[in-house]
Design a protein around this nucleic acid. Sequence first.
DNA 1: CTCGCCAATTGGTCTAGACCTCCGACCTTG
DNA 2: CAAGGTCGGAGGTCTAGACCAATTGGCGAG
Lengths: 259, 259
Amino acid sequence: MVDRAHGAGSIEGGLDPVRRAPVRGLAAYLQIEQELADRIERGALRLGERLPAERQLAGELGVSRMTLRQALARLEHRGLITRAHGRGTFVAEPKLLQHANVLRGFFHETVGQGVVPATRTIEHAAVYATRALAATLGLRIGEEVYKVVRLRSARGTPVVLETSFFPASVFPGLIDLDLDHESIYRLMESRYGARPVRGQQAMESIAAEPPEAELLGVAVGSPLMLLERTAWDMTDRPVEHARDLYRGDRSRFTSELRL
Amino acid sequence: MVDRAHGAGSIEGGLDPVRRAPVRGLAAYLQIEQELADRIERGALRLGERLPAERQLAGELGVSRMTLRQALARLEHRGLITRAHGRGTFVAEPKLLQHANVLRGFFHETVGQGVVPATRTIEHAAVYATRALAATLGLRIGEEVYKVVRLRSARGTPVVLETSFFPASVFPGLIDLDLDHESIYRLMESRYGARPVRGQQAMESIAAEPPEAELLGVAVGSPLMLLERTAWDMTDRPVEHARDLYRGDRSRFTSELRL
DNA sequence: CTCGCCAATTGGTCTAGACCTCCGACCTTG
DNA sequence: CAAGGTCGGAGGTCTAGACCAATTGGCGAG
């Protein structure tokens, strides 16, 4: 009954249409958002189905319409519902995509969608930082750096050739770990406590040169997407610089923009 | 005085701190959002500066606190302000290094940097929306759409071939205006009061086909960057869909990422 | 039967005020 | 002088009700 963060009023959650498991201390609109999101993602509310009108649903939940609308606004922003003036509120499709490489902000559509990419390590070695690499990673020239080249495939087709550089000073011994069966990013976090949280990237369209063309299984001169990126951890230490070559015919990068 | 979309009450905009240019028909919280966003981006509100308390600011604006909070929530989401429980609301970054193509979030490095691109209009006509275009712009199939194809060059070299579509219902008569000597985006704002504020884009690396190869001055099969984008205005109306083809050897797109 | 208008329904916006929690400055106290 | 409590101001949540605008379906007029 008293499952409020703060504020006046009370949640009753009376009827059946939406019955939250009361969570003490969580704001009413967040509880409602959570419950409705669960129902949608579980499929309890079918795609395209119309929700009860706002006034009615608010009544059933024992909250004011404005409070319910706060929850609905968040669900709409998440893409779980759509609202149409004069018509009603409808369940949208559960968008399960995204996140794996959230850092990129981009979503690589081909590899994405639940398809687990196969990874083949082409090369991994400790090398010495060149002038450009040292500048990028904030190191001195000649400092030790781990280089990892991996070919990732989806559904048996090579999609991207990733060449990554990690500063050895931040990840000592990383090169000796089992990189084939464990995500590098997971290892970064679990063993070194350094996780990329910020990045800068650049994209270019280039023609495939012989070495990468062969690995990616395309003709020399085919269009590739070159994605160069550098990532920093929470304390602004550079943790990775990478040069990724995506097959043009297997890759599409999307992003949202503001202003 | 009565510059309302709908709803009760009235905006007075009394004191000086925030004085909106009243726009008939635009919701109060959107007007406030716009005005505050402008001030922040113009630098009239300095970085880190504290805004007046919500109750005070709402009073000065002649709106209720809940209405003001709607505007503040949107500004916070856009990253223009930060709010701290018990402390206040503060101006975040002015993030205004980008200009003309700000919407893209990307900075087209080659064309960017002070170089004023020359624009040549290849085609401009009123056409009818195909199925795909209608879906993208939220129109009915066959509805009128303005198509504008422009070739932009920097330092005498063609760089990008832009094909844009604008819904005629939003910009009636746009096609008859002087698009060669006036920015389309400026016209959107000054004559129609619709400015893109949000976008979704996708990038692909493709090979040049004969028509665009000739216009861009590259060989057929050369790598190009295909950038498809759709933009919405503040009221979530689609205002543009574009398909841009950049020369791969003259373009590099950079972006910042979080998380 | 068709067209157009009207009314009910639904989401969109707004209000005025209430109580809660967090934060920080200030003051009291040991 | 340091520790701790108090209190005012800030944002966070919530309400009950009002009017506006888009949509839709039914009903009446032609």
